[in-house]
Design a protein around this nucleic acid. Structure first.
Lengths: 151, 151
DNA sequence: GCTTATAGTTGACTTTGTCAAGCATAAAGA
DNA sequence: TCTTTATGCTTGACAAAGTCAACTATAAGC
């Protein structure tokens, strides 16, 4: 298999960045930024906050196993972070909603994440921040266009 | 708490990129690109391939719990991917090494990752690829400088 | 009404990950 | 040399994450 040298170099560069960035972002792996909740719980709370969703909706959006999600939701309900109201239209479904505690948990996580990002950015000058966000926009644009082509 | 509007915009931009990129990279979460091994197993195999390492070395490099690692290594040994030779100098230690199968597994993962990256890049023009890698280099440079300041 | 599809639960299981206790060996100090 | 302490690794016990198959209840198509 013959490879073009410049493409090879680019592949190496991209893989290098992937490793770098997963390490960079990976801080929030275990407990979510010092909150008592995990990243998974947070993502589920976030989806529930968006709109009127069911378990199946969330499973699709977050690519979670429905069985795992069912137990996760039970736990969240036991912790009084969410409510499950049986649907009237379809009695197999439950409409999920946040409680006040659930909303507060989400707000806390949001603020923690904001603060962490802010701490990072404060070490940069205005010019550097502009460079950073421009570079991020460039990557998003190029990779998004790519995945549209693939799909 | 008063916030500068430009900083606020940058924070939003960075968090947006974080979500974007974790989604982008997140494909390799469960099984590693269709190989029968997990990301964790691959990372361990990768470290073992580097040089003459012990369990403690790997635990430090990958920030893994030594107990978890011990079991993971047992599993890899049972699968004939690695060897554990007792050290002569220090009889508490084991020198870890890859078997032929282990090396093959690593090669396969490597090639899969390469192929995936290549597929992404092939959708871009040479100019776009240059823009992409330049943007990645910019981000690495800015964020690495940042974390050096913090530390 | 019968069949099939869908929403969700439950049981059984593996993997990931953490913590504490324990064993053997090595290193340091008396 | 003998004791103490530190180190490398294993094991037990546990919780959370995640998968798969079986199951119940309801909905929808024919």
């Amino acid at each position: 298999m013959t490879r073009s040298a410049p493409l090879d170099r680019d592949i190496v560069a991209v893989r290098r960045f992937n490793r770098f960035y997963t390490r960079e972002v990976g801080v929030l792996r275990k407990t979510f930024l010092g909150t008592p909740w995990s990243l998974g719980e947070m993502r589920v709370l976030f989806e529930i906050a968006q709109n009127d969703v069911t378990a199946t909706d969330i499973a699709h959006m977050l690519d979670l196993d429905i069985a795992y999600l069912s137990r996760l939701l039970s736990r969240l309900e036991k912790q009084k972070l969410i409510t499950r109201k049986p649907s009237i239209k379809d009695r197999r479904q439950y409409h999920l909603g946040l409680t006040a505690s659930g909303l507060a948990a989400l707000d806390l996580a949001n603020e923690r994440q904001r603060a962490q990002t802010a701490a990072t950015l404060r070490c940069l000058s205005v010019t550097e921040r502009k460079q950073l966000t421009a570079a991020m926009a460039t990557i998003e644009k190029l990779l998004d266009a790519k995945s549209n082509q693939v799909t």
